[in-house]
Design a protein around this nucleic acid. Structure first.
Length: 556
RNA sequence: UGUCCGAUGGUGUAAUGGUAACACUGCAGAUUUUGGUUCUGCCUUUCCAGGUUCGAAUCCUGGUCGGACAACCA
């Protein structure tokens, strides 16, 4: 249910540009991931924004891999990124790579040198850092700053031809070492890297820096609105300086605040660490905030798009409550998930007044929210059933609307039953519960006139299947994992609980891997990628809202 | 002790000089063969101080607080 929302500030800016006839009203955005990691929910915000505004103004969006650092970038990441964007539901107009522009970028650098706006510096990176000054003190000019144009061109060509070692020389823009903006203090724009690139192989021995690649690529593609996150705000003067000096298409950069989510980490460095140190089972572990993890967990593209819509776009730092993402997926799944009954922690319940060997078949709706109830499935009922252990209490507290000696409950889609006794083993564990049933209370034909407060899910012991269920919880137990300390200290030790043998109604044996299920009263579940017909595995996407659990917590 | 950016309920986001609202959360209730869903109601908001104005969340000035920036990363 995406309620109509007013335009965000980016959309307002674009609307003004379109109205004024800028670029003849043309709108072209781009999504520029670096292929050095998997996409996460924070990228989803950017994807929805970039593709969303373009669509809104009849424009298009390019996908451009920002691959200027061959040491960290891999084709595996390119493929995963493309798959994730498609899964989210977006199509790009063109698939480009910054590396497509290496020749042009090289020419741009030559042009800068020829106009006296760039020079080759022999200083070490330490020396350059030292000469840079600090945010409060101006920097010092490099002794190599005033080489002749001819010398600079010759040196830069030699850098390109591999005549220098890595780190021996860099190309710097010649701007202003006293600028209050650190990025204007003669930024490095090309560095030597004798590394193989995932696309250009060994063709290049020098690679442009982000600042000399990103804006220029935007310009080459005639991007009208280059939307990025706040930390690039201080780069904007350089972005514009380069466009002006190079006299190329004037793309403009706009910044918005990145997404932060409570109870998770979002930086690629930290996510990579979780994978490498095996705190999780890969980038697509269902507890990861990556799009592939969320997908495996059972999140739907629609729920993520809706989430991105709801959180809005602004310039102030924000932390979104993880509960909002859960709300969004529940809202979507409630409408679409097929209902099934599964008992996670079973205890045997025997209907003592039900004939031995008798079996009845009931029809159960697949989805009460659907107009046609999503069709119906068959479930069987007999003398012995499994119910959830937590649904029975020997000495129940007030307002416990479940089973207890002398108490009545409805078995979903079946009869009302009344508990009259139970059996315990030597350790005091309940092993069997004995009930009688009200024959007139059969679901759909209830003439008993009895009203009960509680309804339990159950599974016919004689006709069920065993499945594995993985109960996922938040990966971190603190709202802001780590704070200033090591974030891995805040990992939630109970973030994955595996139930090896849950009892599921027979209909679940026909589960389709693409279907989302609601296990009644438990939550939403989705078949894991490793699930097979022989061994079905279901991941819990999210629990149902549980006001009873909340009630119990309050009493603690 | 620099430059830039920001500040609206618990969390987000609107209101674009004219009654501060929407969503989530929380609380209370109704309905319910899922303690789910749905529905109803309630709680809670303009960082501070001046100024302009008939009127300021909005404009101005000065503070305060928070964030970004000193990679041959992006």
């Amino acid at each position: 249910m995406s309620t109509e929302k007013g335009p965000n500030f980016i959309e307002e800016l674009i609307a003004a540009d379109v109205a004024s006839g800028k670029h003849n009203g043309r709108v072209l955005t781009r999504f520029p991931p670096e292929p050095n990691g998997y996409l996460h929910i924070g990228h989803a915000k950017s994807i929805c924004l970039n593709f969303g505004v373009a669509k809104k103004f009849n424009g298009k969006t390019n996908l451009r891999f920002d691959d200027t650092n061959p040491e960290t970038e891999e084709t595996e990441y390119v493929e995963s990124i493309k798959a994730d964007i498609k899964w989210l539901g977006f199509d790009w107009a063109n698939e480009f790579y910054t590396s497509d522009y290496f020749d042009t970028l090289f020419e741009f650098a030559i042009k800068l040198i020829k106009n006296g706006w760039a020079y080759v510096d022999d200083s070490t990176s330490e020396q350059i850092a030292e000469m840079k000054g600090t945010p409060t003190e101006p920097g010092n000019e490099s002794p190599f700053r005033n080489r002749t144009i001819e010398e600079n061109i010759s040196l830069f060509e030699k850098m390109k031809n591999g005549e220098f070692k890595e780190g021996e020389k860099v190309l710097r823009a010649k701007i202003d070492m006293a600028s209050p903006n650190m990025h204007m203090r003669d930024p490095v724009i090309y560095r030597i890297k004798h590394a193989a690139h995932h696309r250009t192989g060994n063709k290049w021995l020098i690679y442009p820096m982000y600042d000399f690649a990103h804006g220029q690529s935007d310009s080459i593609e005639n991007i009208t609105h280059s939307i990025c996150t706040l930390e690039f705000e201080v780069h904007r003067p350089l972005y514009e300086w380069l466009i002006e000096k190079l006299d190329i298409f004037p793309s403009r950069q706009y910044e918005f605040a990145r997404l932060n989510l409570s109870y998770t980490v979002m930086s690629k460095r930290k996510l990579l660490q979780l994978v490498k140190e095996k705190h999780v089972d890969g980038w697509d572990d269902p507890r990861m905030p990556t799009l592939s993890g969320l997908r495996r967990r059972g999140y739907t593209p629609a729920s993520i798009r809706n989430f991105c819509d709801i959180i809005g776009v602004a310039k102030r730092e924000n932390v979104i409550d993880a509960g909002l993402l859960e709300f969004c997926v529940r809202e979507d799944l409630n409408k679409h998930a097929l209902r099934r009954m599964v008992v996670l922690n079973p205890v045997k319940l025997i209907i003592t007044d039900y004939p031995d060997g008798k079996t009845e078949t009931f029809h159960a709706e697949n989805n009460p929210e659907a107009e046609d109830k999503g069709g119906y499935r068959q479930i069987t009922f007999s003398k012995e059933i499994w119910i959830e252990r937590e649904d029975f209490m020997e000495n129940p507290p007030k307002k416990f609307f479940r089973l207890a000696p002398g108490q009545m409950v409805r078995l979903k889609n079946a009869y009302i039953i009344k508990c009259h006794s139970f059996k315990k083993d030597d350790n005091g564990n309940i092993t069997e519960i004995y009930c009688s049933h009200i024959p007139e209370s059969r679901s759909g034909k209830d003439s008993s006139g009895i009203n009960v407060k509680g309804t339990l899910h159950w599974v016919d012991a004689g006709n069920c299947t065993s499945v594995e269920v993985r109960l996922y919880d938040r990966l971190f137990r603190s709202e802001n994992p780590g704070g200033a300390n090591d974030f891995t200290n805040d990992l939630n030790p109970d973030s994955c609980r595996i139930i090896h043998h849950a009892m599921a109604e027979y209909a679940l044996t026909e589960a389709q891997p693409v279907e989302h299920y609601q296990f009644l009263r438990l939550g939403y579940f989705f078949a894991d990628k490793n699930s097979t017909a022989e061994k079905q595995i279901f991941n819990r996407t999210v629990t149902l809202k549980d006001t009873w659990a909340k009630e119990l917590k309050k009493k603690e």
